[in-house]
C-alpha cells in the first residue's frame, strides 16, 4: 500500500538523517572568522546584511530576478482583470477594519524605513522592510481602502523592475576594470544603501503584486 510505503520511507529517512546529525564531527569549515575579517571592508556593520549584499551578492541579485520571473508566471497563469479567475467579494462591512488600517499603514511605512536604515548596523534590511511594506499594501486593500491592481501600468512596471536594474547596473559597472559585484571601496556603504532602497521598493511591489494583481477591479469604498 502506497501510504504505508511512503510513511515508512519518510520515517526511515528521518531516523537515518537524525543519527547522522547526532554523529557529525565538529565544524570543519567555519566561515565566521573570514566574515569577521571582511566586515570592516564591506561597507556595513551588520554581518547578515554584509553577507546578503556584499560577500554573497550573487544570491540577492539572482533572488530579485527569480521573484520577477515568478510574478510574470503568476500574470501568465492568471491574467489580470479576468473575473472568472479572480473575483473577490466585497470586504466585510466593518468600520473598525478601515479605521485600523488607516492607523497601521503609515506606521508600517515608517517602521519599514527604519528597518531599512537599521540594516546597515543591526538586524534589519531590504527584505524585512519590503515584507512590512507589502503587508501594509495588502492590508490597505483588504480593508477596502485601495483598489486591486487591474493590470501592470507603466509606473508599476518601472517600480517592479527598478530594484533589479539598479542592482544589476551597480553590480556590472565594475566589469569595466574588475569583477562582477566588486564595489569600489570608497563608495561601498552608499552603493549598498542605494541597492537596498531599490530592492525594498521592488520586493515590496512584487510580494504585494502576488496578491493584488489577482484581485478584481472593484472593492473600493
Amino acid at each position: 500500500m502506497k501510504r504505508f510505503a511512503v510513511s515508512a520511507a519518510a520515517l526511515g529517512f528521518a531516523f537515518w538523517l537524525i543519527s547522522a546529525l547526532l554523529n557529525l564531527p565538529a565544524t570543519l569549515i567555519d566561515l565566521r572568522p573570514l566574515l569577521a575579517e571582511a566586515i570592516p571592508k564591506s561597507g556595513v556593520a551588520h554581518p547578515v546584511t554584509a553577507v546578503l549584499l556584499n560577500t554573497r551578492g550573487y544570491d540577492t541579485l539572482l533572488e530579485i530576478a527569480v521573484l520577477l520571473v515568478a510574478l510574470i508566471g503568476v500574470l501568465i497563469a492568471v491574467p489580470p482583470g479576468n473575473p472568472a479567475l479572480s473575483e473577490r467579494p466585497a470586504t466585510a462591512d466593518d468600520a473598525m477594519v478601515p479605521a485600523l488600517a488607516r492607523l497601521v499603514a503609515p506606521l508600517a511605512v515608517f517602521f519599514a524605513i527604519y528597518v531599512l536604515w537599521a540594516g546597515a548596523h543591526r538586524p534589519g534590511g531590504a527584505f524585512q522592510a519590503a515584507a512590512i511594506l507589502a503587508a501594509a499594501l495588502v492590508l490597505l486593500h483588504l480593508a477596502g481602502l485601495t483598489a486591486a491592481w487591474s493590470a501592470p501600468t507603466l509606473r508599476l512596471r518601472i517600480g517592479l523592475i527598478a530594484g533589479f536594474l539598479i542592482f544589476l547596473a551597480i553590480a556590472a559597472a565594475p566589469l569595466l576594470g574588475g569583477m562582477l559585484l566588486q564595489y569600489p571601496p570608497a563608495l561601498v556603504g552608499t552603493l549598498i544603501l542605494v541597492i537596498e532602497s531599490g530592492l525594498t521598493i521592488s520586493l515590496a511591489l512584487v510580494l504585494a503584486g502576488l496578491f493584488l494583481l489577482l484581485a478584481d477591479r472593484g472593492g473600493v469604498r
Binding site: 565566521r32 566574515l35 554581518p47 547578515v48 554584509a50 553577507v51 546578503l52 544570491d59 533572488e63 527584505f127
Partner: peptide
Amino acid sequence: PVPQAMVLTGIV
C-alpha cells in the same frame, strides 16, 4: 550569519 542570510533569501 552566512546560513542566516541564505535562509532570509530562501524565505522570500
